[in-house]
Design a protein around this nucleic acid. Structure first.
Lengths: 237, 237
DNA sequence: CGACTTCTTGAGGAACGTCAACCGCAGTGG
DNA sequence: CCACTGCGGTTGACGTTCCTCAAGAAGTCG
């Protein structure tokens, strides 16, 4: 693992953009002051259990005994993650899904900051709450939706990632992810994901952008699909 | 909704048993002092967004446009829940799955307590962290496991619920849940859940207890199944 | 250009959802 | 006491879907 001690300056404005509102700049500084910056190439895992993703994408990967792979969570730039769990049998391995930079926060340091600054606790609680919300949405997707519906739902989630831009043709999503990763995240095989993409393109709901990009053409219909609103011919799922 | 202002005394010891360690008794008292006690019958929803379940079981229910039902989370006695989300499109409805009693905590009150008492923030963070862990486990189950594996995993989760007792025949789980609810939670149809139960019983891994109880006979094998360790004949999932 | 990975397309079959019928049980009313 | 009703759960038959396997296409890097 490459580590370099740095003082990240780009945090403040990015942090305020999403989920870090109401947090005093000093608190952000306090938290990130003694953090290690870690650079990861795709596929590399990190031992950091607490941190903030600065760029790229981090996935919590699990592998079952027979090789089935799952991504139980995706973290994008500006996301805070805390993987400390109370004696979970098996927790995921934080793995870079692209070139990724993150700030690894030390556990003791976080505890200190929390004791010192009450606004930080509130912000972290809010952030974890949002994460729980995403996980619940995701569980709902996985529990009973068709691959198409799951994909629509995932695309809607990706709209919240930084780098999404509204353009003339629609909304351009920047996805530092392989299609395999998307498939592992929504719980289908890569082949199925590919077929779903093709179908969405045939229906003009999305169109392929350049590398690692997807253009959303028909947002309302995508939302309708994601919420199960489209009459399904399907009997399964 | 029935509400009655009470001073719950049974909290302290129960709270310390699971996930509330390290929390000063005064903090618990402070949090629950001005809480409303709510009693719910099965099927009733509550408007409370923050609270602690005292007895029974609470499920976060969602319904898709065409009637598919999901339970995205289950809360048992001693669980703290916080359903405030940052502008989620659709969040679940907290619904009682049995006769349920809960403490509804007011939002402002929680904020006050957090500002006053730093240990509370830490405890809540830990609790939310544990909840995230459960949700991730659950996502992994839903993403790629067979109904049998999901059921095994769910049973292992239910072992952590209060009321589970080790006996001569095995481990007796107390489940204030209908089978339909279990099915909705693990993302299969009730019929499939029924078939899985039968198969587990035929293999002597579990045996039917009395009403709302399940006896686990072969824990190691159940764990093996849950982690995908059993050679599957299945091609799907 | 070749070696490699990622993605796509096709064919085939098992699994799980759908639908329907049935059982046991609890509550209700006569 | 019995008939009726409704709910939760079980069992069976059937069909669609999505996984598996395999091969090819497309993109990436040397």
């Amino acid at each position: 693992m490459n580590t370099a001690r740095v003082r990240p300056q780009a945090r403040a404005e990015g942090a305020e953009a999403q989920g870090w509102d109401g947090l005093a700049p000093e608190s952000i500084a306090a938290l990130s002051a003694s953090a290690d910056m870690v650079q990861l190439k795709r596929g590399e895992a990190t031992t950091a259990r607490i941190g903030i993703v600065l760029s790229g994408a981090l996935g919590l990967a699990r592998e079952l005994a027979d090789g089935r792979r799952v991504l139980t969570a995706l973290f994008h730039a500006e996301d805070f993650f805390d993987l400390r769990r109370g004696s979970r049998p098996q927790e995921g391995v934080p793995t870079a899904l692209a070139e990724t930079v993150l700030l690894a926060v030390e556990e003791e340091r976080l505890a200190e900051c929390l004791a010192d600054r009450t606004d930080l606790a509130g912000a972290l609680l809010a952030h974890l709450g949002a994460q729980i919300g995403r996980l619940q949405d995701h569980s709902a997707d996985l529990a009973c939706k068709t691959p198409m519906e799951r994909m629509a739902s995932a695309l809607l989630e990706f709209r919240r990632w930084p780098g999404a831009a509204r353009g003339a043709e629609g909304e351009r999503l920047a996805l530092p992810l392989r299609r395999t990763d998307i498939a592992d995240y929504i719980g289908v095989k890569a082949e199925t994901a590919s077929r779903v993409f093709r179908q969405l393109e045939e229906e003009q709901l999305i169109s392929p952008g350049r590398r690692n990009q997807i253009v959303v053409n028909d947002l309302p219909e995508l939302k309708r699909i994601a919420s199960g609103g489209r009459p399904r011919r399907s009997t399964r799922r």
